[in-house]
Amino acid sequence: MPTVHWLGAGLSSAPGIRRLAGGDTPLVLWNRTPARARATVAGLPNPPGIRELDFSALSAAVNPGDVLVSMLPADLHLKVARLALDSGAHFISSSYIAPDMQDLDSEGRTRGLCLVNEVGLDPGLDHLLAHRLLHAYRPLHQEGHRLRFRSWCGGFPALANDFRYKFSWSPVGVLRALRSPSRCVENGKEKIVQRPWQGLSRYEAALPGGHEQFEAYANRDSLPFINQYGFDAGWKLDQFVRGTLRLDGWAAAWRPLFEELDTLEGESGELRLQALGAELWEKYAYDEGEADRVVLCVELEALDGDTCAWHGGLCIDARGNDTGSAMGRLVSHTVSFAVDSVLAGELPSGVSAAPADPALIDKWLCALAELGDEVHTLPRS
């Protein structure tokens, strides 16, 4: 029987680990600090094996057909994927597909091995919701429709603080993202923004608990996902944006930080970035037992002239509880679904992202709902 090797027992891993530990597939949890791993699985009737993370020991332990899950920092994913291929094992991560990961596609296909990425929250669940909306709209498409697609996701404290944010992992990654340009489609044209706060907009979400205003900004490069989600080349795109939600008042609270980030350059800038990260972690990490909140909203709208010809919207509004943080549940439960699907032969070999198959999307979202996190219909704003 294959073994699942889960690497990393951080805050975003625990719920998925505990779910898989309740199944029949052997599970080994590898972590740099075994004591933390033991705390993650404390109280389970059938806890997984726990090993200190050492790549030599890991390589010796992996057998053909096993599954390696990397919940390590993104710069280690390629090393784990390479180890998986060399061992005849499958690989899973929740991170975006980097170019060097994509380069492994041909080898994975040749060996019949899955290299699955983008199966967390964002990216991950957002992909599933986008595919579901495209499947619903496609039969209704008419020439002349102008399409508006929005995918917004954000994590923040359930009880807002003055900073309008808290960190569940190292703030340095958040700061680096704020220094990166974004690319999307607005008003039918490509739009590039050098700093997220320079392209800030407002988004009103009709959530299950009522309407709520958020601040929103595009992040990364949205354009490759036009093809990934299945938009036909001839369709007219008025808007296509994937981005981040923040609590109302976030930009005002962070303005001094934006001003400093804009001045950082070179080696001294990197040192200051690291120092800022340490300061923010000290001030704004989640307290023990403090509840977080995640909001994910995905919408597709088709316009015929000035009239809305079709609208579809899906959302998740989750809060931390005694089963884990909202972020941890949504990321790691989705990763655990990918593990199940790899073992069941439901995912293609080679490099792939979250599935587009309607039946598999339904299966994953039903499993998510059974674990307490439902997808809701989002009415037109």
Rank of each mutant, 00 (worst) to 15 (best):
H145R: 07
R329I: 01
M101E: 12
H77K: 06
A60V: 10
H90T: 03
F337T: 00
L85Y: 10
E374Q: 14
S268H: 06
V4Q: 04
I50Q: 13
P379Q: 10
L115M: 07
A251N: 03
G88P: 03
H141M: 02
G144D: 07
R18Q: 05
G199H: 09
G8F: 13
P45F: 03
R146G: 07
P224G: 05
D122C: 13
R51A: 15
E190A: 13
R380P: 04
L133C: 12
D262T: 08
D304K: 12
A57E: 14
D322K: 09
V241N: 00
A302I: 04
A98I: 10
K189P: 00
L72G: 04
V335A: 09
T110S: 08
A309C: 05
P139N: 13
L273I: 05
L178C: 02
D373F: 09
L368V: 05
L129S: 02
A356T: 11
S268E: 13
W30H: 09
H211F: 13
T40E: 05
P171L: 11
V295D: 08
A205M: 07
G320P: 03
S180W: 08
R272S: 01
R132W: 11
A177N: 08
I192N: 10
A309Q: 03
R82F: 03
E279C: 10
G210W: 12
L245P: 05
R150D: 14
A42T: 10
L178M: 14
A253F: 05
L280R: 03
P196Q: 08
K363V: 01
Q102M: 15
A302P: 04
A367D: 09
S381T: 05
P139E: 15
L125K: 01
P358A: 11
A130E: 08
G328E: 00
H127I: 08
L378E: 00
L147R: 01
E52H: 04
W235F: 05
S352T: 15
D238F: 01
R132N: 12
P355R: 02
F231T: 00
F214S: 04
A98N: 12
A302K: 06
M1P: 07
G120K: 01
R109E: 15
S56H: 12
D373E: 15
S201W: 11
L257I: 13
L264E: 06
T244S: 11
L264F: 08
F231G: 01
G269Y: 02
W30N: 07
V67F: 09
P355V: 14
V67G: 09
L44R: 06
N187V: 04
F231Q: 00
L125I: 15
Q102G: 10
